[in-house]
Amino acid sequence: MKTAPAPGTGTDNTTAALTVTDVTVRFAGLTALDGVSFTVEPGSVHAVIGPNGAGKSTCFNVLSGVYRASAGTVHLGTTELTGLAPHTIAGLGVARTFQNLALPPHATVADSLLLGRHRLTRSGFIATGLRLPSAAREEKRHLDRVREIAEFIGLEKALERPAGSLPYGQQKLVELGRALCMEPRVLLLDEPIAGMTADERRRTASVVANVRDSLGISIVLVEHDMGVVMRLADAVTVLDFGRRIAGGTPAEVQNDPAVVQAYLGAPE
């Protein structure tokens, strides 16, 4: 299997733990998250699972700064993320994918991946408008890296195609690739293999495992496919109705009566 390409120089790739402490999110009377705490160890895959409506996506939105927590804190290493704008959090090295695709359909795959390089590039209106050589050099350098990442996720042949023309599973791969293009320290994957064919599932799962093993990126994974969760995850947090009801290694969680009850309902 291909190994993940090492990131270019100039990126801060020191790993740090992502610590979620007592996070509560309320929307006008509805408590979507209620005092949730967990820690993502550096370089591990941490799965967040739970039935529909458990608060998994809300949790992601808090981590990436899209929602603001009503109470509680999120730290990356020693930096507090709570209250920061999404682009600032992205600038600290937190990348995410979306449950429903968030790709511009007409842009080429290469352009979509280059968008992931936004935080690592500098060219502004004046440099690109006047076509300064610095902008052209920067674009070329990052395009090289984009090609490497495209190869890594198996999409090097699709670089010039509009993202919207690819099959659904491959579009999800493009999103994963775009997040990888940010050279993140923490990668948040929201149902990365939902809607994929068996072949694409295998490939995505191996990409995820490879990212952790060779790049040492911490990964937070929301996924319904328990087989994949159990295979990939080092630790699991289980949410139900916004509360953390269990946590631990995959094996521990699988046998936890509270988890079984949340998924299958209470015994009569």
């Binding site: 511009p104 060219s123 690109t128």
Partner: peptide, 19 residues
């Protein structure tokens, strides 16, 4: 260039652009 991609991202998926 880079600003154009960012602008299109804001148009197509505002939240994703921020992230």
């Amino acid at each position: 260039g880079r600003p154009g991609r960012a602008m299109n991202a804001i148009r197509d998926h505002r939240i994703a652009a921020g992230v």
